[in-house]
Design a protein around this nucleic acid. Structure first.
Lengths: 196, 196
DNA sequence: GTCTATATGTAGATAGAC
DNA sequence: GTCTATCTACATATAGAC
């Protein structure tokens, strides 16, 4: 592993856990096991380092599951695959939603949203939904609203983890059970909403 | 308006918009139209000031709509009232979800979640759902999962505003239309999910 | 109570030896 | 490329006059 890679990995974790303002260059250096000066040697500034990492991570939001999704015939099946794949992704990067949302909402960060890979989302997810609605295969719900709802339901537990933990009296096992069962539960909701 | 109130209001806005780390004591003082030293005179430290504001705001998460909700007979009607009231609340405090979520997820802030007023949520929302399920009045979905889903769907657009704006090509009017129509759309989803 | 001036700590960034 | 030592800026917080 090169020094540059070590820095990048350490910075990734620090930024994801603590956000831009909360992250210290010293903490990144410590985590990478190298000197603070090296951060600037390789990435010039904190801003530049953060920018690189964010641009890499933002591509994960609408994951490249196009191939998996396209295999499925019906739109409901496609949404089910989306929910499953998304849950896998977020389990791997549990801080991703918080990281992206806080970053995009910061003043002066308006340009970050522009790098969202919305093509998959808009041209594929939304488009194929319109198609099945016009064919009467699913109920006529608003495609955008429906998409934001699926995203909201999928992402919420990863954002509200501390609150949910409190609701279940701090019991980690119950929380994990909830998370595991959530995929099937959401798939059920989707069928109830869309099946004519 | 007393100086203390001026500070509190200014601090509230600054913290809600920029979070703890992003907020400067100087910015609060400027916004309040008073001197920086006064902040410490009235609230001792940045931490203490933030703590007071957060404790006040967190009570809004599960709003005190008990009375409105109790008037309704069926659980579905209750959820509909909840969605409506929640939308009103978030329109008034659009930064509330981001503020609460970022604060609770910060390391060392574990105690903040403990002040969540979950009694309304657990004893009323969940309990009355169990009841109607056992009576066969609504479908047998998992009450906790359902509650997190309603919250997730309600809160998502307020968290992902910059992303959604990008999806609609930065068109503010379309965004506002979406937000307005969202309440009715979510109520529809709830009926589809719960009606036996 | 309210201000100005200042103390104190710490962040990001750089200089320069090796 | 990697380090130590240091610069500069700015944040929170306090002292003390009025």
């Amino acid at each position: 592993m090169t020094t540059e890679e070590k820095i990048f990995l350490a910075a990734e974790n620090e930024f994801m856990e603590k956000g831009f303002d909360g992250t210290r260059m010293q903490a990144i250096a410590d985590r990478a096991g190298i000197n603070k000066a090296m951060l600037h040697y390789y990435f010039r500034s904190k801003d530049a380092l953060f920018e690189k990492i964010f641009q890499e991570k933002i591509k994960l939001i609408f994951p490249k599951i196009g191939e998996d999704v396209k295999k499925k015939k019906s739109f409901i099946e496609k949404v089910e695959v989306f929910i499953e794949t998304y849950y896998q992704l977020l389990s791997q990067y549990p801080f991703l939603p918080l990281f992206v949302i806080t970053t995009m909402n910061k003043k002066g960060n308006e340009h970050f949203a522009k790098n969202l890979p919305v093509d998959f989302f808009r041209d594929f997810f939304i488009a194929s939904m319109f198609e099945e609605i016009s064919q009467g295969k699913i109920k006529a719900v608003n495609p955008l609203q429906f998409a934001f709802s699926v995203l909201g339901m999928s992402v919420f537990p990863f954002l509200a983890r501390p609150a949910i933990l409190h609701v279940v009296n701090g019991n980690q096992e119950i929380f994990e059970e909830l998370m595991k069962g959530r995929v099937e539960e959401l798939k059920k909701y989707v069928r109830y909403i869309l099946t004519p």
